[in-house]
Amino acid sequence: MDLSPFETDNSVSCRLASQIPDVCRTEDCCLGIDEAGRGPVLGPMVYGICFCPVSKKQELKESKVADSKTLTEAERENLFQKLDEAKSYIGWALHIISPNTISTSMLQRSKYNLNALSHDSAIDLVQFALDSGVQLKEVFVDTVGPADKYEEKLSKRFPGIEVTVRPKADSLFPIVSAASICAKVARDHVVKGWNFAEDLGEVDSAYGSGYPSDPKTKAWLLKCLDPVFGYPQFVRFSWSTAQTLMDSKGVTVHWDDDDEDGEKAAQRHNNRSMLAYFSASAGGNDQNPTRQTHRFFTERRLKSLDTL
């Protein structure tokens, strides 16, 4: 699996795909969707699709693809090799959602949550298969959220395709297992060889699985915390694990769209640092009630040196 398109810039998301097998453009096909790396506080979330002609379902089943979570890393690698060898009739595509995209989306002013991000990613991949000429008839999706609503959403979006959304679909439908293997293999590779964009020299690579519950991951997060910047872009800042550590060990950062109660904010502004010179609520005239500062200056946050 060549991950270089993502690795050259791992701060943004990226789509990777196999060649489209010719037979998938002429025969009715089924397609499976699964994700890898939804829970971890580190690294990307990877969405994967895998597709093949409906007539090849049995062959796929015999290749013993199984839910990627029940397999060891080596077994997954092997199965991915097998899928790759079957490229005459099996195709795949991945959407690697960078941890930086996850952080900035979830923490955006107008919040874009992980479910929406996941659904959009799945929809993009199905559309990509359609645009590539794959004759899609059946789509199987693994989900963690409520299946009914998601199924309805996808059916509406892709009329004429029979959509099945099921929890644990990765252990029920071989084509979903195959998608899950592609996604998990890609995530494992990316996480293992993470190329830090920050200029941090040698970064300790003992970050474990990336799950917040993994003691190795916890220890790594504690060790790598920078008091001002928090973490490299490898970490999902929107995860409570990261937020809690930054709150307790890092310096406090206030944004103008923070939910902060008025009294607290007022208190803070009475005790302001030089930085407050630039803050949103720095009116011009609060220190000198006898002379109103002209709007020209307050709008530009210009102050005389004496009033700082």
């Binding site: 964009a197 920050e198 001002v228 406090t252 206030h254 930085l275 630039f278 803050s279």
Partner: peptide
């Protein structure tokens, strides 16, 4: 010039984190 208030006066790894990315 940052669009937030950072409760810190002192050195920070600006080139390593901010400039590099």
């Amino acid at each position: 010039l940052m669009p937030c208030e950072i409760e810190h006066n002192g050195p920070a790894q600006v080139s390593q984190y901010l400039t590099a990315t």
